[in-house]
Amino acid sequence: MMVEKAENIIDGKTVVASIGMLVTIISLSMLFATLFLSFFLYRFQATQWPPMNLDRVDQFFPALSSIFIVSSSWFYEVFRSKKSKYSFLLSLCLGLAFFTTQFLFWQDLKSVGIFASSGIYGSLIYAFTWIHSGHMAIGLAMLFYLLPSVLKEDFTRKIRIVNIGKFWHFLAVVWLMIYLFLFVL
């Protein structure tokens, strides 16, 4: 009887943290939805895109970012299901690599003369990547928060691992949408 009750307690808490994370993700998706609303409004009001006879931005770094973030998400899932320390480290490194490509991407934009203050095209690209990177920083902080326990091969905080994973995947999905709408289409 006592054992059964103890298990129930863990189950209950799993649901609590998961509901909290779910509501957080809904909130954040509204934030990004608003940004996309603004993007589509500008996109469909403009008679030509990109505006001001600009060239499309070079797709190399955004594509690289997408590869990094998706594989990071994938390795996180491997870590969660197989409980392997190395997949977690790989996932973390790929997350950092995503950041690096973002910085390189901003450098690249500046070298071709697209700044945040040079018209709506630059404004949109910078605003989206800045806000997304801000959230990526929070996500990375969460991964670093997990790091010590993972290095000790302590996988008992299952709920925490799952929830941080949800946040990480959410950011990957948002990036893919940014990549698709801002850079590919």
């Binding site: 809904i26 909130s27 934030l31 939805a33 608003t34």
Partner: peptide
């Protein structure tokens, strides 16, 4: 929980307009 982030996004864009010269 659903609608405050919408204002948050608006405020962010306004902040960018004011601080970094974006043209939203």
């Amino acid at each position: 929980a659903i609608f405050l982030p919408v204002l948050g996004a608006g405020c962010l864009l306004l902040l960018f307009d004011r601080l970094f010269g974006t043209t939203f």
